[in-house]
Design a protein around this nucleic acid. Structure first.
Length: 863
RNA sequence: GCCCGCUUGGCGGAAUGGUAGACGCAACGGACUUAAAAUCCGUUUCCCGGUAACGGGAGUGCUGGUUCGACUCCAGCAGCGGGCACCA
């Protein structure tokens, strides 16, 4: 018999699906719709294993839902703008447009070889004007509705290249190419007012029932709603004041200093007349813009010489510092420090010799003789007291619990006109300006006379010019000979185009809607199509997008709704976040990384370098990355084993949310199973009964078992696929195919039940190994496509068992099992359990105190 | 530094308050073969007793707790990973 011909079979069915437009999606109000979407890829050159995993997961969902009768939309496109194209342009002298389009062509071919059930007619690419023109229009709509504004903001600046750097281009505070110490600079930039929706974005997380809890938690923390107070501290000696935000107004009596952000207007004013302070601010600017860098840097401050007056304590003066850990972007850019009750403030106070004034004591200490002792210890402690308690040393707050003291403090501040209770969000507005070439041009003109002028709708799109060069650092749009010179749309006088482009998160914030009508010309998408298809029923992608991309998309959907583009505010009803694909790492004797195909495993289990035979050190599995060389090219797997094998391996070894270890042995195991399945139709042990033959009655015992297992498996796999437990679904299918192979030919009714089991296996593997399943389906004599066949349904009568094995424990330890009728009386179960010899031995004369019977599960005898 | 996860045999995992290790990988033993590959059958958490059937003990990162019963719930700790606003 012929071996299963992977390549020929896979190409054949891919062609068949394409010719018949099997996966073309059309709006159809008579059928329930289901929109499955995987995060679209950045066209970096070739697909990687992360893509294979992501798109396999989505494809199983798409094919399964289709079989269940849904009208499925399953599209694919390209997140085509981005930094790597510009890096390639600089390093390899390829134009970003050409590089990107060539990459797309290669990657499209690779995805097609995977047999993914996409409607390729809906393919989009965000770097084409047909796509980005619509987001230019949306930007102008947002501007008209005050969802867009312009302000100064900080960027990483490479003083050697005279270029803005992305955070990833800043390595240990230095520019990745120049090695120069990176500085912070201020530029006028465009912002989207995501904070206008802070409350709604937070509140609506509750409704996203099919999102992972941890993603909702991360977004909740990111939005970071906190209640507290804004407080004005009058500056001693003049009539200005410093406004701070605090979540602990109850500890105001413990205040011992004020700290300003280095970017606070007052700090910058003071720095003008204070060279040392100026140098300190410059030093802070060298930390860079990333929060991680600022938070991990040593906490430092600089005394300004200024003092403020305490709002509650007449005569108390607090020194004002500038501190490197205070963020201008959060609150008011100024804080008050209460060292006794905040660890960071305490560290700061110890460093600069500031007072530590305890103002909260634990409830159980308050009013006891230990109270004094507690306060005395805290005043000299290295650890702040941050837990709940009762206010002390706090005038009118004394004796109040923390929560009550907060309210009382706010009320007093308000009465004094020194502040008020306030809600503060950590979420900041979204800066979308990028000083880069390979992005969507921001449709704005700067006119010396009229100022900022939106490009009129009739002049859209503002097309990104392709005749640019990368021979010098900075944004090529700045150096383009004429692109930026335009007539002002308002007054007609010479003006200058905005040369910044959009953050690439802009494109990915609405592409899911574009797929509803990807060819719409006059608008981003047809309202009717969006109303039909949206929201995305199941979105699938990496956990690394848990906050930014997903939050921006949620915001964008709300903004589009405000502008009347669509009628909903949550884009993704269901979310599945998949884990990474990992591989063990190899280092040669010289310590350099080796690719998996540069090493070989010997029979004795050791691993050596191919060719030289030198010893290789094996490292634990880590995320596949070019830098560690622990990558396997999906195309080599497709060549050697085919798409179904790659898909099976991606699904069978780990649950989707977890990381997956790629192993050569695992892929071989998957390949063996593919061939074993093929043999079920190619060399059947038991010939299937002819179609239409009635179920023999009675069945032999073995046949009856398989008959029941078939139906149990159909039910179990259906349940598993509904909740994305693909690895469990495959384990069940393997159990069924194992049982099918083990069925004795002489069992009564063997032909009939073998045929039934085989047909069930083929239908169940359909979503996961679609090529093999089609080939087997055809071999079973079907003239139709499996892709068009409905999902099998289990006979409920066959799922009911009449007996069940019940575990018997003595004091929680397993001592045996008894076979009992399903749902038998508790007394019967107890009697049968106590009758076991082993149980009697375990009790061995001790008194039975209690017997716990959990019907159909367990009997626990307590002695 | 802050936020969020994860940790179960040699390995990937299953079991989400009720028989820990389903299913697979690897390894070992056997069958088939002149031989190999492929395929098929069997064994495999660890320790103790037993020729065996089997019996006993320990065991889900670590330390405690709740419960008749904990991989599962709670508290603390450790290790590893994701995110931190200009990578996508």
């Amino acid at each position: 018999m012929a071996k299963y011909n992977v390549q020929e079979t896979e190409v054949k069915w891919q062609r068949t699906w394409a010719e018949r437009a099997t996966f073309a999606a059309r709006e159809d109000s008579t059928r329930p719709k289901y929109y499955v979407l995987e995060m679209f890829p950045y066209p970096s050159g070739r697909i990687h294993m992360g893509h294979v995993r992501n798109y396999t997961l989505g494809d199983v969902v798409a094919r399964y839902k289709r079989a269940r009768g849904f009208n499925v939309l399953h599209p694919m496109g390209w997140d085509a703008f981005g930094l790597p194209a510009e890096n390639a342009a600089i390093e390899n002298k390829v134009h970003p447009a050409r590089w990107t389009r060539e990459n797309i062509a290669v990657m499209r071919g690779q995805l097609q070889r995977m047999g993914l059930a996409y409607d390729w007619d809906r393919e989009i690419s965000t770097c084409e004007p047909e796509y980005y023109r619509h987001e230019q229009k949306m930007f102008l709509d947002f501007l008209a509705r005050d969802l867009v504004y312009r302000r100064e903001s900080w960027v990483n600046w490479d003083p050697v290249e005279n270029t803005v750097l992305a955070n990833e281009q800043v390595i240990e505070g230095k520019g990745w190419r120049s090695g120069a110490i990176v500085e912070k600079r201020q530029l006028a930039q465009w912002f989207l007012r995501i904070t206008a929706f802070s409350d709604d974005l937070l509140e609506s997380l509750k409704d996203l029932a099919r999102w992972p809890e941890r993603v909702r938690l991360m977004q909740e923390n990111w939005i970071g709603r906190s209640e507290g107070a804004r407080v004005f501290f009058p500056v001693a000696g003049n009539d200005s004041k410093i406004e701070i935000f605090t979540t602990r107004p109850d500890t105001l009596f413990g205040a011992s200093f004020i700290a300003l952000s280095p970017h606070h207007p007052l700090a910058r004013d003071l720095a003008k007349g204070d060279a040392a302070l100026g140098e300190f601010v410059a030093e802070c600017n060298r930390i860079g813009t990333s929060e991680a860098a600022i938070e991990t840097a040593e906490k430092k401050g600089h005394k300004t010489g200024l003092e403020v007056l305490h709002p509650f304590v007449p005569g108390r003066r607090l020194p004002v510092f500038v501190a490197n850990f205070v963020l201008m972007e959060y609150g008011t850019g100024a804080i008050f420090g209460c060292p006794a009750h905040d660890q960071r403030d305490l560290d700061f106070a110890r460093k600069y010799g500031l007072a530590v004034i305890p103002v909260v004591v634990p409830k159980n200490v308050h009013g006891t003789p230990e109270e004094k002792d507690f306060i005395a210890k805290l005043a000299v402690a290295a650890e702040a007291y941050v837990a709940d308690g009762v206010a002390v040393n706090s005038g009118f707050l004394d004796g109040l619990a923390v929560e009550d003291a907060k309210h009382a403090a706010c009320a007093r501040l308000e009465a004094l006109g020194q502040g008020a209770g306030a809600v503060q969000f950590r979420l900041r507005d979204w800066g979308v300006s990028r000083q880069r070439y390979w992005g969507c041009p921001i449709p704005i003109v700067h006119c010396p006379a009229c100022g900022v002028v939106p490009v009129p709708e009739k002049d859209l799109p503002v097309v990104l010019p392709e005749d640019v060069t990368f021979d010098r650092p900075g944004n090529p749009l700045e150096h383009h000979p004429n692109w930026k010179n335009v007539a002002c749309p308002k007054c007609g006088k010479p003006a200058r185009r905005e040369t910044d482009t959009f953050d690439t998160f802009f494109e990915s914030s609405w592409y899911f809607a574009r797929f509803c009508s990807p060819k719409a010309e006059t608008r981003p998408f047809e309202r009717r199509a969006a109303d039909y298809w949206l929201p995305v029923d199941q979105y699938i992608g990496g956990i690394e997008h848990a906050v930014l991309h997903l939050l921006y998309s949620r915001f964008f959907t709300r903004a589009m709704k405000e502008c009347g583009y669509l009628g909903l505010k949550e884009p993704f009803a269901g979310l599945l976040t998949q884990g990474m694909v990992c591989h063990e790492t190899y280092r040669g004797a010289d310590g350099k990384w080796l690719f998996p195909d540069e090493v070989e495993r010997r029979a004795d289990g050791t691993v050596v370098q191919t060719g030289t035979g030198a010893a290789v050190a094996i490292g634990r599995a880590e995320k596949m990355s070019k830098s560690r060389k622990n990558v396997v090219d999906p195309e080599s797997i497709l060549d050697a084993y085919g798409a179904d094998t790659a898909r099976l391996f991606m699904l069978s070894d780990s649950p989707p949310e977890r990381d997956l270890d790629w192993t050569e042995a695992g892929i071989e195991g998957a390949f063996r199973y593919i061939n074993r399945l093929w043999r079920l139709v190619d060399e059947p042990i038991i010939p299937a009964a002819p179609p239409g033959e009635l179920l023999p009655d009675p069945l032999g015992a073995e046949a009856e078992k398989l008959h029941r297992l078939t139906h149990r498996t159909v039910a179990a796999v259906t349940r598993d696929l509904d909740v994305f437990h693909f690895n469990k679904a495959i384990a069940r299918i393997r159990e069924l195919s194992n049982a099918l192979e083990a069925l004795p030919a002489e069992a009564g009714g063997a032909e009939w039940v073998a045929g039934e089991a085989l047909e069930a296996v083929v239908r169940l593997i359909g979503p996961m190994m679609p090529h093999l399943a089609e080939a087997m389906w055809q071999r079973l004599g079907h003239a139709t496509l499996l892709a068009d066949a409905p999902w099998p349904v289990a006979d409920a009568m066959l799922l009911v068992e009449d007996t069940v094995a019940v575990a018997v424990q003595v004091n929680g330890k397993l001592r045996g099992t008894v076979e009992l009728p399903m749902d038998c009386a508790e007394e019967d179960a107890e009697r049968a359990a106590l009758a076991l010899e082993n149980v009697a031995r375990a009790i061995s004369g001790r008194k039975v105190r209690k017997v716990i019977v959990v019907p159909n599960r367990i009997v626990n005898v307590v002695v």
